[in-house]
């Protein structure tokens, strides 16, 4: 049997809200070490990679590896039936064709149970090579969300340029052009508010804003986001999930013709 109880159930709600517009169906790979998911969007431009380690659950039981194919839109609807402070348990019997979701109120006086039919998903697994990135930018996730939203006013794509001074987002379209420049923070009260650029070499890449906007829906998961860039390599956008794992998005760059 597979059973994973997540005391902070709202993490799962935020996760699914963050990926449901990007990916329709996904295989949850359940292993003794934890829960993972890898899925590309239908146009193969972006990839979602989720890891939730077993030690983030309480308890976590996985007797053998299981693949749970789940329609994320259905899962999102079901998760809307839970409260933010509910404890959420995912359970799957060894020979079952469904995943069971249990929502438990903090005082345990309300228990709801939903049985979700599993779906068969033909999912290509991709090998993501280890990359030494030219630049790694860390910034508040709310700032990232705001910049992406602001740049969308101007056009469909954004050029992100990392230098020793900081990071610059620029866009241009029919109505005009604009940019937002973030300097590296010198002194901040909280690390979560800082902007840092770890630079090996200056790099400038262009990406579709539509996807960045979808990634930025993960902002409620984590106060900070990390963007990793290398020339002509997919962008990595990473949100840490408390102390238990991460939600990563990869986005293929736009290439000059």
């Amino acid at each position: 049997m597979f059973e994973a109880r997540l005391p902070q159930g709202q993490i799962l709600k935020k996760l699914i809200e963050a990926v449901r517009e990007l990916v329709t169906d996904a295989n949850f790979e359940c292993k003794p070490s934890g829960l993972s998911l890898q899925a590309m969007d239908s146009s193969h431009v972006s990839l979602v990679s989720l890891l939730m380690r077993a030690d983030g659950f309480d308890p976590y039981q996985c007797d053998r590896n299981r693949t749970l194919g789940i329609n994320l839109r259905t899962l999102a609807s079901v998760l809307k039936c839970s409260s933010n402070d509910d404890i959420i348990t995912i359970r799957a019997e060894d020979d079952g064709d469904s995943a069971i979701l249990i929502f438990e109120s903090p005082s345990s006086d309300r228990l709801s149970e939903f049985d979700l039919k599993l779906v068969d998903i033909d999912n290509e697994q991709l090998v993501i090579p280890d990359t030494q990135y030219d630049a790694v930018v860390r910034m508040p996730s709310a700032e990232f969300q705001r910049i992406v939203r602001d740049m969308q006013i101007l056009g469909d794509s954004v050029t992100i340029a990392c230098s020793k001074d900081g990071v610059k987002f620029s866009a241009n379209g029919e109505i005009g052009s604009g940019s937002v420049r973030l300097k590296q923070s010198s002194a901040v009260d909280s690390e979560d508010d800082a902007v840092t650029v770890d630079l090996q070499q200056a790099v400038s890449l262009t990406f579709a804003l539509r996807y960045l906007s979808l990634f930025s829906k993960a902002a409620p998961l984590s106060p900070t986001v990390t963007l990793s860039f290398s020339k002509d390599v997919p962008l990595l956008v990473e949100f840490r999930i408390a102390d238990m794992g991460h939600l990563r998005f990869y986005l293929a760059p736009k290439i000059d013709e």
Partner: peptide
């Protein structure tokens, strides 16, 4: 002008 690349060109299918 730029074109959107796809991930298949960067990541290998297992």
């Amino acid at each position: 002008d730029s074109t959107q690349s796809r991930l298949d060109g960067f990541f290998k299918v297992l």
